[in-house]
């Protein structure tokens, strides 16, 4: 599947997203210490790291949910460090947060309509068709309150929400979380497709091998700092070294 890649991106590809010395904290709890890396145009970047390393925090800073205490974030040519989340979203950055990120009190369809409309998607019905086409299981639950969906169905809806509106950069946190293997396969296929249409990806995932297989580059986060960054082939050994060894049962 590696041969599908258009070409290995080089450093001269302009950066779509660039973090420079980003520090972030939650009140008195510090989470990021000078994180710098970039996501070039048309590139899939994997963000890996052990638990609590700050992966979700990076995603939140990028999408404006958490404001950086220091450093800067540039996206699509703008300095978005101080932008509110809605403005970043409208500039073309879609973020699917970890966990159950759906509006529990809205129906499945309302969730999707909201996502599609607010970002100015012209034809809501097209967007809905696309979402239900990708996650056919959701179509059966169209009018169900999202809060009553099963865990996996809620994850599907979270992902569907960021797919209804076309974007320049897709940030997905804990991609395979709670999804059955068959669906995980489909989602990975879909991301590959999306990447091939020119959207950049920043993907956070606990199953490192899988996410590396669809990525061009990887960023390794250790305790709130970037420990390694580069093309997948180059950082592979660093990942082996930095992340705790894979237990034998998943070899």
């Amino acid at each position: 599947m590696t041969d599908e890649r258009p070409q290995a991106p080089h450093d001269d590809v302009p950066a779509l997203l660039e973090l420079r010395d980003v520090e972030a904290s939650y009140g008195p709890y510090r989470a990021l210490f000078g994180v710098s890396f970039s996501v070039p145009e048309r590139t899939a970047v994997a963000l890996v790291g052990s638990n609590g390393a700050g992966k979700s925090t990076v995603a939140r800073v990028v999408s404006g949910l958490v404001r950086a205490k220091a450093g800067s974030v540039r996206f699509a040519g703008h300095d978005v460090t101080r932008w509110p989340a809605w403005r970043i979203a409208r500039a073309g950055l879609a973020h699917a947060p970890e966990g159950r990120s759906v509006f529990a009190s809205l129906t499945v369809e309302e969730n999707l309509v909201l996502a599609a409309r607010a970002l100015g998607t012209r034809r809501t019905s097209d967007a809905l068709d696309r979402a239900f086409g990708t996650f056919s299981q959701l179509a059966a639950h169209r009018h169900q309150l999202a809060g009553t969906l099963s865990g996996g169905e809620q994850r599907m809806l979270s992902l569907a929400k960021v797919l209804v509106a076309p974007q320049r950069l897709l940030v997905v946190d804990e991609l395979s979380f709670g999804l059955a293997p068959a669906i995980v396969d489909e989602v990975f296929d879909m991301l590959r497709m999306i990447r091939n249409t020119g959207t950049s990806l920043l993907v956070i995932e606990q199953h490192v091998d899988r996410v590396l297989s669809i990525s061009d580059r990887a960023v390794v986060l250790v305790r709130g700092r970037v420990a390694a960054e580069g093309a997948v082939a180059d950082v592979g050994p660093a990942i082996e070294r930095l992340l705790p060894a894979h237990p034998q049962w998943s070899a």
Partner: peptide, 16 residues
């Protein structure tokens, strides 16, 4: 209704 439930998640969808 979306903003009531989660203003931040609404913002992620571009809602002010």
């Amino acid at each position: 209704r979306a903003v009531v439930e989660s203003p931040r998640m609404a913002e992620l969808s571009g809602v002010r």
